[in-house]
Amino acid sequence: MTSTFNASLAISRRAFVQAGVATLALPAYISRASAADTFTCRIAHSEAIGSPLTNAFERWAKSMNEKSEGRIDAQHFPASQLGGLAQLLEGSRIGTIQATTAGPDSEEAIAPEIAAFGGAPGFIYKDEAHVDRVLQGDLGAEVSQIAREKTGVEFVAYGESGFRHVLAKTPVTDLASLSGLKIRVPELRVWVDFWKKLGANPTPLPYSEQYAALSTGIIDGLESDYFSVLGFKWHEQAKHVTPTYHWFLPKAVRVNAAWLDSLPADLQAIVRDTAKEEFLAQRTENRAKADKALDELKAVGVEVHAIDEAERAKWADLTAPLFDEFGSKSPKTAEMIAKIRALA
């Protein structure tokens, strides 16, 4: 009886120890299972094929895939393949896509204090060094946090399409030649207000519709960076460019915050670190190649029309009231505008 009891006790102890070992091993097993999970990252945007921004997104996707050793499956869909800008922005907020890009001004309706960082209203950025002081410092980090809290996306890095200029079917050399011009603008109020102040006829249209709108006469021109003009071949429909430097458009690299938070800590770091690395390179490339892109436009028959500093100053003076108008949206908006201008 006693030996039977002791044998049973020994078996019970062995079973307990084995169960304990198995229990202790469970977190390691779970950890290994988690490490083997694959997280899909759909990157979709409306930037042109071959532009510095699109090239940076391609590199970013490759870098995430390689550095995560395949645990992140980053898939890249440029040039509005998954929808226009409005759809892409909404997709990034709700998580149907994981990453996209747009100017911070795209959040005007939800977080108006962010919109100023997208160059709103025009002439807020003096030069590229001013842009870097704003976006690569404490203010840039603050904007990312606001975006996360209010819109459900985190700005993990900032790229840029750079200064924007006017492309039109007829020469634009002064305010008189701009008067009444049907110029395409993003579907945002601040852009409409800007061009109305200058006497143009702003026409809000989706980004992807500009070529057709030029060819059918819905618009007479548009305003954009040189890379996009080349990439989308808008120059085939409008042959006159005016370097106006009226609006500098940073591009926030927007990642759905819920998706980012669902990643293991090491993968979160890979997403953020690789984004900062690739879009630093993108900004450098963009600035180095802007003049070359203008030369390429000249080579395909685009005429360049200069405006002097006195004329440009008139444009800035006419749109200057927008700082107060835009700032009146909220005290925080006015505060942010003041912070940006103080770093000029």
Rank of each mutant, 00 (worst) to 15 (best):
residue 181 L to K: 09
residue 234 W to S: 10
residue 190 V to A: 03
residue 79 A to V: 08
residue 329 K to H: 09
residue 279 F to H: 00
residue 208 S to A: 09
residue 336 M to F: 06
residue 239 K to R: 13
residue 51 S to Y: 01
residue 161 S to Q: 07
residue 240 H to A: 02
residue 242 T to D: 03
residue 121 P to E: 10
residue 268 Q to G: 07
residue 47 E to M: 15
residue 254 R to D: 09
residue 75 Q to C: 06
residue 77 F to S: 02
residue 137 G to E: 02
residue 102 A to V: 04
residue 339 K to G: 04
residue 216 T to I: 13
residue 137 G to K: 08
residue 274 T to Q: 02
residue 265 A to L: 05
residue 227 F to E: 14
residue 125 Y to H: 08
residue 236 E to Q: 12
residue 325 E to T: 02
residue 288 A to W: 00
residue 288 A to T: 06
residue 279 F to V: 00
residue 251 K to W: 00
residue 278 E to L: 00
residue 164 R to W: 13
residue 175 L to V: 01
residue 232 F to K: 14
residue 19 A to P: 00
residue 160 E to L: 02
residue 336 M to I: 13
residue 193 D to N: 13
residue 33 A to F: 07
residue 242 T to C: 07
residue 177 S to T: 15
residue 278 E to Q: 00
residue 257 A to K: 01
residue 50 G to S: 14
residue 166 V to E: 07
residue 309 E to P: 02
residue 165 H to I: 06
residue 297 L to R: 02
residue 233 K to M: 12
residue 323 F to V: 01
residue 88 L to P: 08
residue 199 G to S: 07
residue 235 H to K: 03
residue 255 V to Q: 03
residue 59 R to C: 01
residue 20 G to Y: 11
residue 217 G to T: 07
residue 183 I to A: 12
residue 110 I to K: 08
residue 89 L to E: 12
residue 164 R to N: 10
residue 102 A to W: 11
residue 147 A to F: 02
residue 149 E to A: 11
residue 26 L to K: 01
residue 31 S to G: 11
residue 256 N to G: 01
residue 9 L to S: 05
residue 136 Q to N: 09
residue 157 A to W: 00
residue 213 A to P: 09
residue 18 Q to L: 15
residue 298 K to Q: 06
residue 107 E to V: 12
residue 25 A to D: 05
residue 11 I to V: 13
residue 78 P to V: 08
residue 35 A to Y: 09
residue 298 K to N: 08
residue 142 E to K: 01
residue 333 T to R: 02
residue 189 R to E: 15
residue 226 Y to R: 10
residue 307 I to Q: 14
residue 176 A to D: 14
residue 31 S to L: 13
residue 97 I to R: 03
residue 256 N to E: 09
residue 123 F to M: 05
residue 81 Q to H: 09
residue 5 F to M: 15
residue 221 G to L: 08
residue 18 Q to I: 10
residue 11 I to F: 10
residue 333 T to N: 07
residue 169 K to G: 13
residue 297 L to E: 15
residue 246 H to I: 14
residue 43 I to Y: 09
residue 156 V to R: 00
residue 163 F to D: 05
residue 328 S to Q: 10
residue 276 K to L: 01
residue 130 H to C: 06
residue 210 Q to H: 13
residue 88 L to H: 05
residue 96 T to H: 08
residue 228 S to P: 04
residue 11 I to P: 03
residue 113 E to I: 04
residue 209 E to S: 13
residue 96 T to N: 11
residue 237 Q to L: 07
residue 166 V to I: 15
residue 131 V to E: 12
residue 125 Y to P: 04
residue 86 A to D: 01
residue 142 E to T: 11
residue 63 S to E: 08
residue 30 I to F: 13
residue 217 G to C: 12
residue 281 A to W: 00
residue 127 D to G: 04
residue 274 T to L: 00
residue 290 A to Y: 04
residue 294 L to Q: 12
residue 110 I to Y: 06
residue 90 E to R: 14
residue 242 T to R: 03
residue 89 L to Y: 04
residue 66 E to N: 10
residue 164 R to I: 05
residue 19 A to S: 10
residue 247 W to G: 09
residue 343 L to A: 09
residue 56 A to W: 00
residue 40 T to R: 11
residue 240 H to S: 10
residue 192 V to Q: 15
residue 197 K to C: 12
residue 296 E to S: 06
residue 181 L to T: 03
residue 341 R to W: 05
residue 21 V to G: 14
residue 63 S to K: 10
residue 274 T to A: 00
residue 153 V to S: 05
residue 253 V to K: 00
residue 328 S to D: 11
residue 114 I to T: 10
residue 182 K to C: 13
residue 204 P to V: 05
residue 83 G to Y: 04
residue 268 Q to V: 04
